[in-house]
Simulated assay, not measured.
Amino acid sequence: MIRHLVLFKLNEGIAKDDERALAAAKGFEGLDQQIPELLEWQTGWNVSPRDVAYDFALNSLFADEAGLNAYATHPAHVAVAQQWREIATLVVADFEV
């Protein structure tokens, strides 16, 4: 099993109520219904006020690296990932569980 975590930090001048941020977050809705390799799917806005905190998080689970790769190249994921890259920086961690 592969756990895939992504943390998003909105770029300077982009707030979480910005229409671009709201659209990017909405783009994740239902992705688990479109990509069968997704075994678990959680996303959400951060609630921590700490300075080191990121703004948005994604937590997902795949059976194996092939499933993760299928997700990474799926057109629905590619489209929403591009939305996020335009408004945020991100960090990714993939680890075996």
Rank of each mutant, 00 (worst) to 15 (best):
L10G: 05
V52L: 07
H4P: 07
W45A: 08
D51K: 15
D51W: 00
A23M: 04
S60D: 05
G67F: 06
P49Q: 15
L68C: 02
A76T: 05
L7W: 06
A63N: 11
L22E: 13
K16H: 15
V91E: 14
P36V: 08
Y71E: 13
A63V: 08
S48P: 03
F28V: 03
I35W: 05
R20M: 06
V92R: 11
Q34V: 05
A93D: 07
F56A: 00
G30N: 02
D18P: 04
K16M: 12
D55C: 04
D17Q: 13
A57P: 02
R85N: 12
A24C: 10
L31E: 06
A15M: 08
V92L: 14
G67V: 11
G30C: 01
V47I: 12
K26M: 03
E12K: 15
A15F: 08
L58C: 07
N59D: 15
A93M: 11
F8W: 12
A63L: 11
K16W: 15
L38Y: 02
L68M: 08
A57W: 02
F8C: 04
F56M: 04
I35T: 09
W84C: 06
V92Q: 14
N11D: 14
A81H: 01
L61P: 06
V92T: 13
A63G: 10
Y71D: 06
Q42N: 10
N46W: 02
A70F: 03
A72H: 05
A24V: 06
D55H: 14
N59E: 13
Y54M: 13
E96I: 09
A93F: 09
L61F: 10
L68V: 02
R85E: 10
F8D: 04
V97P: 07
L38P: 02
D94I: 00
K9Q: 11
S48M: 05
I2W: 01
A88Y: 07
A21I: 02
N59T: 09
T89S: 15
N46M: 00
T89E: 15
Q83T: 08
D64I: 00
P36R: 06
E37N: 04
E19M: 04
